[in-house]
Nucleic acid binder design. Structure first.
Lengths: 136, 136
DNA sequence: CCATGTTTGACAACGATTCTCATTGCGAGT
DNA sequence: ACTCGCAATGAGAATCGTTGTCAAACATGG
């Protein structure tokens, strides 16, 4: 348990060909992609990487905070390169339209609440559901 | 579209024994439960209902807006009856210990945020994860 | 160049959810 | 009350994303 020396890109992992391939797939895409999509993309491109390896790598990167992971409506995990600020989703119950919102107040409140009860290493999820203008 | 005769509980569906059982399981529980938990609960209680039926019923209720559905961190779908009391959960990642917390500030913030984007009929879910004092 | 602990990949195992389809039962019409 | 049609059910198979297994391929420090 000696590390946290390797800072950015490769959360202290060996820079293997496969990991670099996954990283580059993430780097060259804007939005969220599923593990399988990344696996397919790499295969198509020639840098074939085992599916299990893609999953493992994405997990590591997510743990290390190098990528954001969220879930589609049907439970599939999707990833995108991080660095983006933490935000929440405002989702329309009817058409699914989503707006990303941020709120320092909420971040502060959750931390305070956790601290008050002695919880450390806090994270949270917040989803807001409503009916958007067009669906009312 | 003639209805609202069958008011609340049963979104216009036939009030079968099974659907009533699922509805009651939701009614008597505060928080979120997975389909399987509901299935188990009903089984234990004697009102055995097929697992597929539990899934189907929950889907219908969710579509009808009678229950809220969200996803756990590992992608499992969990449900709770709609318009639940306004409290949130502070969950220990390690031992699972849960504290219920309330926050008018958050309620206000989510409403404001929704209003700002033109969303009506707002609800939200907030879960805080951390490591509790005993598990640190 | 060698030893050693990592990482990989093919495939099996898993768990949640959905599908299939024969059977059941609600409820409208007579 | 009796019957008929169609929605609803349940048991198990089928899907699908994801994780586990384990021997073989590797990277890195000595």
């Amino acid at each position: 348990m000696t590390n946290t020396d390797q800072p950015t890109d490769q959360a202290g992992l060996r820079p293997t060909k496969q990991r670099l391939a996954v990283a580059s797939a993430l780097a060259e895409t804007e939005g969220f992609q599923s593990a399988q999509e990344i696996h397919d993309l790499l295969g198509r491109r020639g840098d074939s990487v085992g599916l299990a390896t893609v999953y493992r790598t994405l997990q590591r990167l997510a743990e290390a905070g190098d990528v954001d992971m969220m879930r589609t409506e049907d439970g599939e995990a999707i990833y995108r390169r991080c660095s983006d600020s933490h935000h929440h989703h405002l989702v329309c119950r009817t058409c699914g339209r989503t707006v990303e919102v941020e709120g320092p107040a909420v971040e502060r409140w959750t931390s305070a609440m956790a601290a008050e009860h002695g919880y450390a290493d806090v994270s949270h999820t917040l989803e807001i559901f409503g009916t958007c203008r067009d669906c009312q």
